[in-house]
Amino acid sequence: MEKTQVPAKKEKMRVLKPALICVLVLTLLCGVIYPLLVTGISQLFFHDQANGSIITVTLKKDLTVTTTDEETGEESTQVYPAGETVAIGSAYMGQEFTSPQYLIGRPTPGAPTNLSPESEEHAQMVQERIDFFHELDPSNTADIPMDLLTVSGSGVDPQISPEAAEYQVSRLARERGMSEEDVRKMIQKHTSGRFLWIFGEPAVNVLLVNLELDGYIA
């Protein structure tokens, strides 16, 4: 008995020890060296993209920012004076626009609804959104593109379809005192096309259009 036990124990160690060391070595390789290498290359060559594509602007007029404390529900306001430089968002994260003088994006609750499109709740949500647009611009009776009425997968979709932008052109022109052609040109400028002509869908970046409407970017 004793003779067979010793090699059996040794055999066990010949599996366990390499297994443990292997976990550690691969952790070093894949969990430390690899991400550091990617971070190094990214920060060197794609500094802006790697850090969230943050857009900073110098404010042209005072901006009052309202924050709601998540725990107490108390609202507080802070005024950023004109001339101050602030981070106004990421080019790739949608933000909520409700004022008629802005191009309005998809609903941005910050999270997906996960509702079945056949559910009662979903139908209600779409109806509320349709009413919102009709109230915003009663003169516009065109059918509204579905992407303006539904919540995206991320809840912060930064883009809308060109049709959804076109739907808002007349209102924007009126509110801003511009010609529809100029508004269209602006939208066109911030529309990304399909990759290699076939992959993905054309999409209009809402924040960039609004920044240009406000004169922050040219």
Partner: peptide, 27 residues
């Protein structure tokens, strides 16, 4: 990974960025 970063996928060890939105919300 490097191709993804070139498209705007983040790769950094810094903390989250505070921003204010054009319509005056903090995020």
């Amino acid at each position: 990974a490097v191709l993804l970063v070139s498209q705007g996928v983040v790769q950094t060890f810094s903390s989250y960025h505070d921003i204010v939105t054009l319509e005056g919300a903090a995020g």
